[in-house]
């Protein structure tokens, strides 16, 4: 049974199509537009994913000033935040 379980876990983790968002990431685009560069809320396209992941960590820890990002970042672990950061900068 173990190989089948491993295969199913692999399938779970594998994107079904190019650019598929990790859990939670697609919601970010509701505010952080990849198309608008002039907004009060910054676009994340082209940003350094490590920098975005560090910001998410700081929001989660309460060490960076925030209005709403602290409340949202607390819903994700470090690994989840890194996956989101890597996707959201595309």
């Amino acid at each position: 049974m173990a190989p089948r379980l491993a295969l199913s876990l692999l399938l779970q983790a594998m994107p079904a199509f190019a650019g598929e968002a990790p859990p939670g990431a697609s919601s970010c685009l509701g505010c952080h537009s990849p198309a608008r560069a002039d907004g009060a809320i910054p676009s994340l396209r082209g940003r350094d994913p490590a920098e975005v992941a560090a910001l998410l960590r700081a929001y989660r820890d309460g060490t960076a000033p925030a209005t709403v990002m602290d409340r949202l970042a607390r819903g994700f672990s470090e690994a989840e935040s890194r996956a989101i950061a890597a996707w959201v900068v595309r």
């Binding site: 685009l29 509701g30 505010c31 952080h32 537009s33 198309a35 608008r36 907004g39 009060a40 809320i41 209005t67 709403v68």
Partner: peptide, 12 residues
Amino acid sequence: YAEDWFATITAD
């Protein structure tokens, strides 16, 4: 941010 959200969500 509310105004900005509206601009983004309607553009999307």
